[in-house]
């Protein structure tokens, strides 16, 4: 179910899914290791120091009811700080390592001269509307070309949703009155591997009402030339344009205008 999605454009391009898989693998490996070491060490010691009914050691100093804990010369804590130091090093280096990749994920890869495509995603009860730079809108299915960086600007027209695709490892909050951003890219190899049309499941990851469970969508990735043809046919699509105009949600108008103004698709 986890598709490693590689990109062609350059060696420095990594899909969010790849970044995620890499970090997740490192965390999982180290986390499992640390977990097994700590838990087995603990279990072994608990077994070793069990009360087997034998006479206690000479240095065993049993506590008594009513003693004050201070001034009892409690056990030494040297080992405590050694373990604490080690765990701190592991945790801090893990996070510093992951932070480097965060900066990449935040900015997205450099698209160079290839223009990227900006899509506005608007969540509603209960579905997704995808708005293209030319004003065309699609309900619940986002059709995009392969090998392009797709930038998503995500918002909502009613309640708080969360737009996400587990396959692509992308996710973004859809909040009324706010816009958040994410990006993805799918290689033509991946599209070819899925038989000329790659599809990815879209789900809502924030409880948004009675239809939350059924709030599904799909991202469809097709080769660039097929997409160009498809996109050209959507120009002046009167039906969807009228859906657009009839939309009463005024608070999202600004983001739409912005999306349309910036979106220079090289098609």
């Amino acid at each position: 179910m986890i598709h490693p999605i590689t990109l062609q454009q350059g060696t420095d391009w990594q899909a969010q899914a790849e970044v995620f898989e890499e970090i997740f693998f490192v965390f999982l490996a180290l986390g499992t290791l640390v977990g097994i070491v700590v838990v087995s060490y603990t279990l072994w010691n608990v077994y070793k120091y069990r009360d087997d009914g034998s006479e206690p050691d000479a240095d065993f100093d049993a506590p008594v009811v009513g003693e004050l804990p201070t001034g009892q010369g409690g056990p030494k804590a040297k080992k405590l700080f050694l373990s604490f130091g080690l765990s701190a090093i592991v945790v801090i280096s893990l996070v510093v390592y992951a932070y480097g990749l965060l900066l990449y994920v935040e900015d997205g890869p450099d698209t160079g001269e290839e223009g990227d495509i900006e899509i506005t995603v608007e969540g509603y009860q209960f579905g997704w509307e995808f708005l293209y730079p030319n004003g065309h809108s699609e309900m619940n299915e986002l059709v995009v070309p392969a090998d392009k960086r797709i930038d998503l600007t995500v918002t909502s027209r009613d309640v708080w949703h969360n737009f996400g695709s587990s396959d692509l490892r992308i996710k973004s909050d859809a909040i009324p009155g706010e816009t958040s951003e994410t990006w993805f890219s799918v290689s033509s190899d991946e599209v070819a591997a899925q038989g000329g049309e790659a599809t990815f499941r879209v789900e809502c990851f924030e409880l948004c009402g009675s239809g939350h469970s059924a709030m599904k969508g799909q991202i469809t990735v097709i080769p660039q030339d097929e997409w160009d043809e498809w996109y050209a046919n959507t120009e002046g699509d009167s039906e969807s344009a009228s859906v657009e105009d009839a939309d009463p949600a005024s608070d999202t108008d600004t983001s739409r205008v912005t999306g349309a103004a910036i979106g220079g698709v090289g098609a």
Binding site: F20, G31, G35, V38, A98, L101, V105, K171
Partner: peptide
């Protein structure tokens, strides 16, 4: 201990982006 280790995963923002929700 298990809850704590899986919590460190969530502390890394890139992982949190995917674990969210």
């Amino acid at each position: 201990i298990l809850g704590g280790i899986t919590g460190v995963f969530l502390g890394a923002i890139v992982l949190d982006y995917e674990f969210r929700g």
